[in-house]
Design a protein around this nucleic acid. Structure first.
Length: 572
RNA sequence: GCGGAUGUAGUGAAGGGGUUAUCACCUGAGGUUUCCAACCUCAUGUCACGGGUUCAAAUCCCGUCGUCCGCACCA
């Protein structure tokens, strides 16, 4: 937290005053961790989301989907969220401090996070673990702290338990079969989704940084783990990234992502490739490139699903904050959903280069003997026999079944079978690389980085240097005075500009012209259009550039066509 | 969840058991003004919510909720 002389306070006050971002439900007292996007903020978020979507859509193999926020419990049990977000907490009876039970036991057990609550309780007593606050050993029973919002599907009693989704990713996994068909069974492909996620944080702090309801934007990119990807890193070659690898393997470096990938610091090329695209996106929407770094998760902090994870962190008024997580999730999710449902539609087909002829001899059970001998276990015995690689057994031998039990196999139970088959390919679980963006945190840092406090004729002056295509309002329409027929011309121009798609304008006729320029600058309007008496004569207006106040005169028709094509800046 | 601080116009602050609650900026209306926060006049609050004490509460007390800081927690 840098001492910024109150800049953070002035920025948040401005964001409230101007309707960018403000606490939600304030007249009822407000709720921590819930924020409104006002008229300016709402459009800003829309623009950021649209650019994000377009950033991925242009790859050609990534499509947008949308799935419910309300998620039935079994989905989140399968994904591991019900277990993972159920950290157990122990409360000290004498001083009421609360700690994570597994953290208290970290010196007494190799991995206490796997223990059930009864063992946590007994181990706390047995090991004499004392409260870090008051040094007493007197604990209430550990109870789960579930960070998900729970609800019921079904209005009456006995509905199904559900949760508000803690991430959007599961929706993409549920849609894997539809995506696989959509892409004609060919990997790699991806799906993106933007929307709300929910986490019932214990104590949300730091404004927009930790929210209870937040905007996320996630991409799931499905790949074949056996295909070595050939990504083109050339556009980032001359651009060293600030990398903070897992301290166990390497120390912070500044190097190109291609080199980091080739040296194995980034463990998978596709992760490196998405780091590049992530960097492009962040810079495009107005994040200061010098205040971006990528930090690799250490083994211990890696989420339950990830095999490598890099966070894009952005430096702002709250220090370095992780705003994007790029995780290699392996086949964890698709496998987990297959296992818990028994459904096998989450696989992809990998054809062999050449069809494989399989000509092998296997041990097959003789049904007439095995059936009567093992009865209900007969199927398991046959399955275990089929998996035996050694067909030259000495009889009798012990066979281990899937459930761990052993049976004795006699020679008369067995028939040698020769199997001839042609295999054209195989089914496999795709791996997935997931870049997950915290939209609110990114928007916060855009505002933080673009908020400029300067001086103008001795007075303090603020301006929001948003990139043009992010700006919530594209142009401000300002009649020099509200009389002599200037209002009518200005109002018509305003409505004409608003009818151009993806262009927004606001009309401002109150106060001096300088004051109105200042108001527009404060919320980052890139262009201010002034209607004066000359406009009435020749249909020209002046256009002023936000960042330097430079003005030029232009015909209204040309202005509109330039706005429609987003090419105003070419005029200067 | 614990401890401390705190809640007064759109924003930021001052005040404080007594009738019309201050200040600055902002915002709106009118006037004035021919291009960078000019000026003049006027307007906007039941002082977080609920209860209590009192003749009288924005002020004192209790509770609730929120916010900030510290602790703890945190993909």
């Amino acid at each position: 937290m840098s001492d910024d002389g109150g800049r953070l306070d002035r920025l948040t006050a401005m964001l409230r005053r101007r309707g960018v971002i403000l606490p939600a439900f304030e007249i009822h007292g407000g709720v921590a961790g819930l924020y409104d996007f006002g008229p300016i903020g709402g459009k800003l978020r829309r623009n950021v989301k649209n650019i994000w979507l377009q950033h991925w859509a242009k790859h050609g193999d990534i499509v947008e989907i949308d799935s419910p926020t309300l998620t039935p419990e079994p989905v989140l049990i399968a994904s591991g969220h019900v277990g993972e977000f159920n950290d157990y907490m122990s409360e000290c009876k004498s001083c009421n401090s609360v700690f994570r039970s597994d953290h208290l036991l970290s010196d007494h057990h190799p991995n206490p996070d796997v223990l059930p609550p009864e063992e946590l309780n007994s181990l706390l007593i047995k090991m004499g673990v004392t409260c870090p606050g008051c040094n007493q050993n007197d604990w209430l029973d550990a109870r789960p702290m579930n960070l998900m919002f729970e609800t019921k599907i079904g209005a009456m009693r006995g509905g199904r338990t559900a949760y508000m989704r803690p991430e959007t990713a599961q929706g993409m996994f549920m849609l894997f079969p539809a995506l696989y068909r959509h892409f004609r069974n060919r990997l790699p492909f991806g799906a993106v989704q933007t929307g709300k996620g929910y986490r019932n944080e214990i104590s949300p702090r730091q404004g927009m940084i930790r929210l209870r309801e937040f905007n996320m934007a996630e991409l799931e990119y499905f790949i074949d783990p056996e295909v070595v990807p050939s990504h083109d890193f050339s556009k980032w070659n001359s651009m060293p990234f600030n990398l903070i690898p897992d301290p166990d393997t390497s120390s912070p470096v500044s190097m190109s992502i291609r080199d980091a990938s080739e040296k194995g610091i980034i463990r998978h090329p596709t992760v490196a490739w998405f780091m590049g695209w992530t960097w492009d996106f962040l810079v495009a929407v107005g994040i200061d490139p010098n205040r971006i770094r990528f930090r690799q998760h250490e083994g211990t902090e890696m989420a339950h699903y990830a095999s490598d994870c890099w966070d894009a962190e952005i430096e702002g008024s709250y220090g370095w904050i992780e705003c994007v997580g790029i995780a290699h999730r392996g086949c964890y999710d698709l496998g987990a959903h297959e296992n818990s449902t028994g459904n096998s539609s989450l696989k992809a087909w990998r054809p062999f280069q050449e069809p494989k002829s399989v000509d092998k001899t296997i041990l097959a059970g003789n049904g007439a003997v095995i059936g009567p001998a093992f009865r209900e276990k007969a199927n398991a015995v046959n399955a275990a026999l089929a998996e035996l690689s050694n067909t030259n057994q000495e009889y009798p031998f012990q066979l281990t079944l899937d459930d761990g039990s052993e049976v004795t196999i006699e020679e008369n139970m067995i028939e040698m079978k020769r199997v001839v088959a042609t295999e054209h390919g195989e089914w496999f679980l795709p791996h997935v690389v997931e870049p997950a963006f915290g939209i609110d945190r990114i928007i916060w840092h855009i505002l933080d980085h673009c908020y400029i406090e300067t001086e103008k004729s001795g007075e303090s002056y603020t301006l929001m240097q948003l990139p043009e295509f992010i700006a919530p309002v594209n142009v401000a329409i300002l009649p020099l005075m509200e009389k002599d027929g200037l209002v009518e011309v200005a109002d018509l121009l305003h409505r004409q500009i608003c009818s151009i798609s993806d262009v927004s304008s606001y009309y401002d006729g109150s106060g001096s012209i300088g004051r109105r320029y200042a108001r527009a600058d404060e919320v980052g309007v890139p262009w201010a259009i002034t209607i004066d008496h000359q406009t009435l004569e020749d249909s020209t207006v002046t256009i002023r550039r936000r960042d330097d106040g430079l003005q030029m005169r232009i015909e209204m028709d040309l202005l509109q066509s330039k706005l429609a094509t987003g090419s105003i800046s070419e005029l200067f």
